[in-house]
Amino acid sequence: MEGSARYKVPGGKLVSIKLEYDTSIKKVMILGDFFIYPESALDEIEECLVATGVDKSETEIANKINYVVTSSGIRLIGVTPDAIAKAIKMAVK
């Protein structure tokens, strides 16, 4: 299945999700007008989400993103792990 969603982060930027999934995420694309440093880290975040069960809670997904962000020293501006997780859950129909 495919899903998509757009979510405006309160006080931040727009995050848009394009998702391919069945019981878990097959492919995810995170789009938007936010800033991530280094920019190449977005691939790392997208990769960490592949194979995540779509029944996982928003908090569990956010924790997974947060782990990568913290362990790799990634800086997010205008977007947060919580906001990405929320948009992913919105994209799952």
Partner: peptide, 9 residues
Amino acid sequence: IGCFQSMAD
């Protein structure tokens, strides 16, 4: 466009 945006979108 910003580097995380979709040209087509």
